[in-house]
Design a binder for these strands. Structure first.
Lengths: 235, 235
DNA sequence: GTGCTGCGTCGAACGGTGTTCGTTGTCGAA
DNA sequence: TTCGACAACGAACACCGTTCGACGCAGCAC
């Protein structure tokens, strides 16, 4: 039978779905798109499935569960980090700071990835590469094996916690004015505390609420950690 | 009509509930009991209501939402901390470490509270008292106002992240054997990585997986932070 | 060519979650 | 005695992660 000029009432192949088959990569791609645009909470198995025009059950043939999907997203973020290499004993402190800045940059670029990463040891390939890199820098700094190992636990913990805090406060996208309003309210809360019981909090209200928007606070944190490691290394 | 000797078909007062009225304190008490026994995930508005023999809607007359309940639980934990006082410029580093140890102890005593605290600035009365105390110690250490303010953000961030990591890994109660098995698997994973691409990770597999059970890792962290703050203070 | 078998797909359902709505019952003030 | 305010709460809404079981199709053995 040749093709009729009219639309066939019941098409020979009833809308044979021309969609290419599902796979891990397509799932992670879709989840990543959604997370970048709408944050961690917006990524559910159902919504990812919907984005791929299928049902939630289909995902489980390629991904063990939500936690594994989270880990895959974290590793995607880790892939985008380009960390200082090779380690240079002369500049290890600056390299360490650069590495931490780069980790934060990567997490900020994918809002929600910090939420996915927190409290889970990331064991993906890219994450392991960053671990190896950090170990190199720390050993170049003269830290003992044990100190380097614990530091490599401490450092991502701090960076992830900072990134997480940022994306929770701005869970829904906050405009700069929203942030300013929030900080202002916080400051008036601090200054309105009873000065006899909270003298320092009242006095330092300004300092306590500064640097919430920019990178100064994070720079302070990485300065503390780097200086602390340096002090322990030279002992 | 006087009382009939028989059970009235429809009792005059249908089992007038003799339960005392709900209030914030009873709700927080119940939630705390459940969280200590079964962890953060076990505390849902429904389960708390069930524990109090009522429906979930009843709670909302006393608590704005789950997040507020979480904050109340965090503040309960903060109440149990007794932090070093008064600040002593001669011993501020030791006082700071003691304060961090005490914060971790309090969070460990209430598994799940770290999960409730993470990513939210705790503003309850007890939490503010601990902030005030930390500020005192840090100012005694000679830190600038701004440095003290940022440090008071960094310190709970670290302690909370450590406590959270601990309670996530052992979400369901893990026996010591379970922990050991998990650590063993992690170590074999590290050692089985390709040695050409991950030489340090393979070599330091032992160090990377040590101290997961005890306090050594945490002690290392607070040593780094204290040393870093001391270095910045003396500049 | 035929039949079978294994696997990816996926609609439906299960048991949970936080939260809201609208009714009910009680109690204190007028 | 009436009224109004408000705590209590059953039911429902819109979600969530995950599992079950039916279905259809590809590749292989015969």
């Amino acid at each position: 039978m040749s093709q009729s000029p009219w639309q066939p009432i019941s098409p020979a192949k009833p809308a044979r779905p021309p969609k290419e088959p599902l796979n891990r990569e397509r799932i992670v791609d879709a989840a990543l798109r959604m997370m970048v645009k709408q944050g961690y909470e917006a990524v559910s198995m159902r919504k990812v499935a919907q984005e791929l025009q299928t049902g939630p059950a289909s995902l489980y043939a390629h991904v063990a569960n939500k936690k594994e999907l989270d880990q895959l997203l974290v590793d995607r973020a880790a892939e985008t980090m380009n960390l200082p290499w090779p380690p240079d004993p002369e500049r290890w402190q600056e390299q360490l700071k650069d590495a931490m800045r780069e980790m934060l940059r990567a997490m900020r670029a994918m809002p929600g990835v910090a939420r996915a990463a927190i409290g889970e040891v990331p064991l993906g390939e890219a994450a392991m590469r960053s671990t190896e890199c950090l170990l190199g820098i720390l050993k170049a700094g003269g830290l003992s094996d044990q100190a380097a190992a614990w530091a490599v636990d401490l450092i991502p913990l701090y960076v992830t916690a900072v990134a997480f805090e940022e994306t929770v406060q701005g869970a829904a996208e906050w405009s700069p004015e929203d942030v300013e309003r929030f900080v202002g309210e916080l400051r008036t809360f601090f200054t309105s505390l009873p000065a006899d019981r909270f003298p320092l909090t009242v006095a330092l209200a300004g300092a306590l609420t500064s640097g919430a928007d920019g990178d100064e606070r994070f720079e302070f944190g990485i300065a503390v950690i780097t200086a602390g490691l340096a002090a322990l290394a030279s002992k």
